[in-house]
């Protein structure tokens, strides 16, 4: 069907869909009058039971840790999907990236960008590590901190060349980090089985809330997820960059 017909059909059915959607939203409680008891129970009992002060991280890595395991493997599968989609097809070859050739044709980034980028790599890594490790006390955790750490790797590429990025973060190390993170999250649950209780039960000593070493397995799960997310995003970044700079169609 032509574009105009498709748009008109969508507008017609879209109006019907919008009507149904707004009618169903009428059945929700008014905005600001959330009534569910589960959230209130978790807010009240998270400090006595698990000694964490950030309830969202406790839910992610302890109360509903099984969902996080599933999400982690969705991420892993998507990264594997990117790797297999961007593999070298028949008729393509690798060539040295533009900025590695003897007669450099690519302009280097300007001095201001380089200085700013390299100056920001250190603080970014520090902030990322802080967010990952303190996931059980303040807002943060493995997911946010992992993406921040992958951004630090991107800063290295932006402020210098692709070859520098390969030296700082070699592909093998990134892949290893990703696999290690995903496997650690699954294996941490085994600690519960070894102790004699359920899989993914929080079995390490809980400590006191507000201290760095508290909340049992929650900081360990946070670090495992941070490792996996960092490896995943850095790997996807490297794959896309490799496609753009290195892979060429064979003439």
């Amino acid at each position: 069907m032509s574009a105009a017909v498709r748009r008109n059909v969508f507008l017609m059915f879209g109006a019907g869909f919008a009507a149904l959607l707004l009618w169903s939203f009428g059945g929700l409680p008014d905005f600001g009058h959330y009534a569910g008891p589960y959230g209130d129970i978790l807010n009240a009992s998270s400090i006595p039971e698990r000694q964490t002060t950030a309830v969202v991280s406790a839910i992610n890595f302890d109360y509903r840790g099984f969902d996080t395991l599933g999400e982690e493997f969705i991420l892993f599968a998507a990264v594997v999907g990117v790797a297999s989609l961007l593999r070298n097809l028949r008729g393509e070859r690798d060539r040295r990236p533009d900025d590695d050739a003897r007669g450099r044709r690519v302009r280097e980034p300007s001095v201001a960008v380089s200085v700013l980028g390299l100056g920001l790599v250190g603080p970014t890594v520090l902030v990322g590590l802080y967010v990952v490790v303190h996931g059980h006390q303040t807002p943060g955790g493995g997911f946010q901190g992992g993406v921040i750490l992958a951004t630090a790797l991107l800063l290295v590429y932006l402020s210098d060349t692709y070859v520098t990025l390969l030296r700082v973060g070699p592909m093998a190390l990134i892949e290893f980090a990703e696999a290690l993170g995903a496997a650690s999250l699954g294996l941490l649950g085994l600690a519960g089985l070894i102790w004699g209780t359920a899989y993914m039960e929080n079995v390490l000593p809980l400590g006191t809330a507000g201290h760095l070493l508290s909340a049992g397995t929650i900081p360990l799960s946070s670090v495992a997820v941070g490792l996996a997310v960092t490896g995943g995003f850095a790997f996807m970044l490297s794959e896309f960059l490799e496609q753009t700079l290195v892979v060429r169609r064979r003439r």
Partner: peptide, 26 residues
């Protein structure tokens, strides 16, 4: 929702446009 805000800012303002730009460059 500070956790979600942190996650969305880092992913939606940095990582996602980066992937789009890299795909476009290719």
């Amino acid at each position: 929702a500070p956790d979600v805000g942190l996650s969305q800012t880092v992913v939606g303002a940095v990582a996602l446009p980066l992937m789009i730009l890299l795909a476009l460059a290719k």
